[in-house]
């Protein structure tokens, strides 16, 4: 009998088969639209219902038009301001809550209930929240105005939503309020993933809660923080629903975000699909660059150092070895 080849059962092919639906859906609904958007940014495609287009003589014409567009510049600025004003308080509060919820010494009761409560705003649809806040800050009569006058903070009604910074602030607050629960859940999951031996050791060594948090929890959370930061950045740069539904970019374009700008270009008025596509691509590049910067800033510096040291250690040894060999 010759050596019979062992028939191995390959399970891998099932993996490929099962992934076909996803690959198909991805190619049709994600890859193709992205490719199409990238292409029409270089064309003259505009006007409702048109699908025929030709490439522009100056392929970057749309990109230049968008980049120099004062509304686009303003929308970039607004998006950055609103995102920063929402992210800093959001991460701070989420960290504080994480510290409390994961504290080994003071085991909080009803943790589950609190987590659900904090997560709740994220479940409500954006449209509801936008209308809710619009009504709350109604002028000349609205709950907030009534409250301010009752407490004697203001003499007469204030038109909150006419003030640019108030409008921006409210949108930042809504974003903060909707997302801190989500961030907190992610951070708690991160803390639970830290080796408990570290905490026990710290406890035995007599570290205070504060020391444990700053010297063990925070450094170990770095990758999770990076994840939170990058996903929040991407989501924040694409912020659309709340600014659109709350004040439709107003007052005086104070809450016009890049996505609302893109929407306005494409769908409200002249159907400038080409300019909207160019603006989308610019936004994509900006997000990619910022994410890259974040990855670089928050890279694991110790690991990098360690690698370097290892390399340096190896180098002289090899040289020494060579020398030894010569002698």
């Amino acid at each position: 009998m010759g050596p019979k080849k062992l028939k191995s059962v390959s399970y891998a092919k099932y993996g490929y088969i099962f992934s076909i639906p996803f690959v198909l859906a991805f190619l049709i609904f994600t890859a193709y639209p992205i490719f199409y958007t990238a292409v029409i940014g270089f064309t003259d495609l505009k006007g409702l219902g048109k699908t025929d287009f030709k490439f522009l003589e100056n392929p970057l014409q749309n990109f230049e038009a968008v980049w120099k567009n004062p509304s686009f510049q303003k929308s970039l600025e607004n998006t950055a301001i609103i995102w920063i004003c929402n992210f800093i308080p959001q991460i701070l509060l989420a960290l504080l809550l994480t510290a409390w919820f994961t504290n080994q010494r003071q085991k909080l009761r009803c943790q589950g209930a609190f987590k659900v409560l904090f997560y709740m705003p994220n479940i409500i649809t954006a449209a509801t929240i936008a209308i809710l806040f619009n009504t709350l800050f109604g002028y000349p009569m609205g709950p907030v105005n009534d409250l301010f006058q009752m407490l004697g903070i203001a003499d007469g009604p204030t038109e909150f939503l006419r003030d640019k910074w108030t409008a921006k602030g409210i949108i930042s607050f809504i974003q903060f309020w909707m997302w801190y629960g989500q961030t907190m859940i992610v951070l708690i999951a991160g803390v639970l993933g830290i080796n408990p031996a570290l905490f026990e050791a710290a406890e035995i060594d007599g570290a205070t809660s504060r020391q444990v948090f700053f010297h063990i929890t925070l450094p170990s959370l770095r990758t999770i923080m990076l994840f939170t930061l990058v996903t929040s950045l991407i989501g924040g740069m694409q912020m659309f629903d709340i600014p659109k539904l709350f004040l439709n970019g107003g007052p005086d374009s104070a809450t016009l975000t890049v996505s609302v700008f893109i929407y306005n270009q494409a769908f409200s008025g002249s159907y400038l699909y080409n300019r909207a596509a160019a603006a989308s691509m610019i936004l994509f590049v900006i997000i990619a660059i910022l994410s890259g910067i974040l990855f670089y800033l928050l890279r694991d510096k110790d690991a990098g150092k360690l690698k370097k040291q290892m390399r340096e250690l190896k180098k002289p040894r090899r040289q020494q070895g060579g020398q030894r060999h010569e002698t």
Binding site: A12, Y16, L24, Y32
Partner: peptide, 21 residues
């Protein structure tokens, strides 16, 4: 294995092309 993968991918691409067109 690679052949199967290639087959799957090319079929997928054909599909998208057809649908796209």
């Amino acid at each position: 294995m690679k052949r199967i993968l290639a087959l799957v991918l090319s079929v997928a691409m054909l599909f998208t092309l057809a649908i796209g067109i």
